[in-house]
């Protein structure tokens, strides 16, 4: 256990869309290497929360403090816009449910991975291509497909490419929005195994939003259950899923069809 300060400290996070509640009073800490799952049904506020946490949506109230590589901690909404963008390009990653939003569909797979490197100052073409090739291999994409665009890729391959694009800059925090949503079950299993392994090897902190409790159980060590914009239950993933306390969590857990 590291006793260092948390990577991310969230307090009193609240979002109203006009008078309609997005989420309210969310608070938690996240340390390096921790995987936190946010679960709940559609409309529970979990996607709003992810957008707030990843700096894409400005909160109505509350703070999101992030510990930078130099050790200084700053509220992400006190940063300048360029600073926040730099953080997003380098230290953070964001895996969209639909890979089309996380990839540039018109440029090659190698270019998709290389682009993130160029954004952080890489200029040597050979080094960029070598690193991109290496990352495609790590996400199990055949090297012969490096010059093809993601348009020619299957859904599972696109998602793996999106992961490579995100992880190539060695981020410390990655947000994932239903990363296995919309994929065939066998493709899901492969992607989950890949994600699990990469996250553990690289000691990345992850916040993953999912409605699939099996994904939460396989990937995360901690979980937050959301309902109507509020975190109703939180704790160790296996404890919350095996000994759920709240009526809604019990309903969620008991609604899974046994295989």
């Amino acid at each position: 256990m590291t006793d260092s300060a948390p990577l991310l400290t969230v307090d009193g996070l609240t979002k109203y869309y006009g008078r309609r509640l997005g989420c309210t009073d969310v608070a938690f800490d996240l340390h390096e290497g921790e995987v936190l799952a946010i679960v709940g049904e559609s409309g529970s506020g979990k996607s709003t929360l992810l957008q707030l946490l990843s700096g894409q949506l400005r909160p109505s109230a509350g703070t999101i403090r992030y510990r930078m590589r130099d050790g200084a901690t700053a509220d992400i909404w006190d940063m300048s816009e360029p600073m926040r963008r730099l953080l997003f390009r380098t230290d953070w990653g964001y895996v969209h449910q639909d890979a089309q939003f996380g990839l540039r569909m018109g440029i090659s797979a190698g270019g998709n991975v290389g682009e993130r490197l160029m954004a952080v100052g890489w200029r040597n073409y050979g080094a960029i291509r070598d690193t991109a090739t290496d990352w495609l291999a790590r996400v199990e994409i055949d090297q012969s497909r490096i010059d093809d665009t993601p348009r020619t890729y299957s859904g599972g391959m696109r998602q793996r490419l999106q992961i490579a694009r995100n992880l190539v800059t060695a981020p410390r925090l990655v947000f994932m929005d239903e990363p296995t949503g919309g994929l065939d079950v066998s493709v899901q299993a492969r992607l989950l195994d890949l994600l699990r392994r990469l996250v553990a090897d690289l000691n990345i902190a992850v916040i993953v939003v999912t409605h699939d409790l099996a994904v939460a159980r396989l990937m995360s060590t901690r979980i937050m259950v959301m309902k109507a914009g509020t975190v109703i239950e939180a704790g160790l993933t296996d404890q919350v899923l095996d000994d759920p306390r709240e009526p809604y969590t019990q309903l969620l857990v008991s609604s899974i069809l046994p295989v």
């Binding site: 256990m1 340390h31 299993a189 492969r190 989950l192 195994d193 699990r196 901690r222 160790l236 404890q239």
Partner: peptide, 26 residues
């Protein structure tokens, strides 16, 4: 807190469950 329990599980307490929870592909 959860982090403390996870730390115990990594270093102090081992647990052999009745059934193996198999992870796909591993």
């Amino acid at each position: 807190p959860p982090r403390r329990i996870l730390s115990l599980r990594r270093r102090v307490i081992g647990y052999v469950t009745q059934f193996l929870r198999a992870v796909p592909r591993v």
